[in-house]
Design a protein around this nucleic acid. Structure first.
Length: 445
RNA sequence: GGUCCCGUAGCCAAGUGGCUAAGGCAGCGGACUGCAACUCCGCCAUCGUCGGUUCGAAUCCGAUCGGGACCUCCA
């Protein structure tokens, strides 16, 4: 497995901290609204990362947080005339529903900031003790100047940034880039701390959670490119101050989805929500996987249609093979080995282990689909059909693509054979009726 | 002002020093078919522009044009 590491700016071989295990953390959503299709990219991509490692035999400890205390949440709660707890519960559920719809597993550890207050406060205390943070009137800030390698991840020099250009410089801070660890709060949810009532800064949340859950440097930390600076830079600074390591060996970042030639952002109202997608979510998932994860993903209606149609095509083949094999009662049979099918499989895995090159992997999936279609046209190719079908199933499981299919009932089988008979007898009226019924049942396409 | 990414056929998109530039969509030409759908076979690009390095470049370097991201919450 080779992975591009933002920290070193190059592709490196993956070496787990503990053989056979992958400890990974992905920055989760701030739950104040429904997620949009840009937010869906990491939800899909990192799920595929996890599935790939699992296929390769690793045990993956996947953690992704919910930020449920934040200014935006307070604002939104006021807008909707509700309280923050109700609001965040609602959007956590909405997030999980969307993730599920997109085919991403929701079975992972999902810590909430509000439930991690003690570890977070403890983390901040340690930073103060070590001289890397300071308190000013109930706020606590991280002292950026105390970190030698601040800017390592995002490749920035502290003093070359255009500071205060668009945001007022907070004169309580010793340096404008110092970031808030603890914020004194008048309104909204607040928690007791040694510095008075307040709430934690966003950047500490993830670092403290990783510290508490894993207790050591993890293998992979992921998120969108926009998090590189300052969020991930700040996480690294804190981990380095406390434990002299960079929190994760590999930092992975997915590129943005672009719509209408630009970034889709929540602040510009130019958004499409996942819950509002009218196409099959698997079509959207396929679209996401059609572009290398680090490249920008160009989204438009034509692309969405193309991939949705493509998904229909793949699904049809998969389903036809499933029913062809079920009719022969071969689905549970042992598949033989065919070198040409092994090749598709091996090339697929090769692409996936080459920094998760899903675009290339898909081309091998298409090759296998074509082979299935060829075999479906033949009368007696069931052995190779089974082998190909089983391999396609593996590819589906790695990419998180799913087609819900039910085995044929006795009535289904009879109807199918009746259709075949009617056609053979040139009773086209009856054949068409049966075809329609079989199509309704999803057995024919 | 600093950091960085991208520009490959009508569209989406791999490839990042070397056989005839993956794959998909659309298009075109065939085949299959009771009809239709599906499917299959075949065709379809010299890589933004200019210059350089090299035996050899889409791939490296320089310039130039165009697009985009980050430096502020953001996936």
């Amino acid at each position: 497995m080779r992975i591009f590491n933002t920290l070193t700016h190059q592709i490196e071989p993956f070496k787990p901290v503990h053989p056979g295990t992958v400890n990974m953390y992905v920055c989760g959503p701030t739950v104040y609204n429904y997620i949009h299709i840009g937010n869906a990219r990491p939800v899909i991509f990192f799920d595929v990362v996890r599935r790939t490692f699992e296929y390769l035999g690793y045990t993956v400890n996947f953690v992704s947080n919910f930020t449920d205390v934040d200014d935006k949440i307070i604002t939104r709660a006021k807008e909707l005339e509700t309280d923050e707890i109700t609001l965040t519960q609602r959007f956590i559920k909405a997030f999980l529903d969307d993730a599920e719809r997109l085919g991403s597993s929701t079975k992972y550890m999902a810590p909430k900031a509000t439930e991690y207050m003690q570890p977070i406060i403890h983390y901040i205390e340690q930073l103060i003790e070590k001289g890397h943070a300071y308190e000013v009137e109930g706020d606590v800030y991280f002292d950026v100047k105390k970190s030698d390698d601040y800017g390592l991840l995002s490749n920035r020099q502290i003093d070359e940034q255009e500071l205060g250009a668009r945001i007022a410089i907070n004169d309580k801070k010793r340096h404008p880039l110092d970031f808030t660890l603890w914020k004194k709060t008048e309104e909204g949810l607040k928690f007791d701390s040694p510095w008075g009532q307040g709430r934690p800064g966003w950047h500490t949340e993830c670092a403290a959670m990783i510290d508490d859950i894993f207790g050591e440097k993890i293998d992979i930390h992921g998120g969108g490119v926009d998090l590189v600076f300052p969020h991930h830079e700040n996480e690294i600074a804190q981990a380095h101050a406390l434990h002299h390591h960079h929190l994760a060996n590999i930092w992975m970042h997915n590129g943005h989805l672009q719509i209408n030639d630009g970034k889709m952002s929540k602040s510009e109202g130019d958004v499409i929500l996942v819950k509002d997608l009218t196409v099959d979510p698997m079509g959207f998932r396929l679209l996401t996987l059609g572009t290398y994860y680090r490249a920008p993903l160009m989204f438009n209606d034509e692309a969405l249609n193309t991939y949705t149609n493509e998904w229909e095509r793949i699904k049809r083949t998969y389903s036809q093979a499933f029913y062809a094999l079920d009719l022969m009662e071969m689905l549970d049979g042992e598949a033989k080995n065919y070198p040409e099918i092994e090749t598709f499989h091996d090339q697929f895995i090769e692409a996936m282990t080459d920094d998760f090159n899903t675009a290339n992997a898909l081309s091998h999936l298409y090759g296998l689909v074509k082979l299935l279609n060829q075999k479906l046209r033949e009368d007696n190719a069931y052995d190779i059909l089974l082998a190909a079908f089983n391999n396609l199933k593996i590819m589906f499981s790695i990419l998180g693509l799913r087609v819900p299919l039910k085995r044929l009932s006795k009535a289904d089988r009879n109807m199918y054979h009746a259709w075949k008979d009617a056609r053979r007898n040139r009773d086209f009226e009856r054949a068409d009726q049966l075809r329609e019924k079989l199509t309704e049942r999803g057995i024919l396409h």
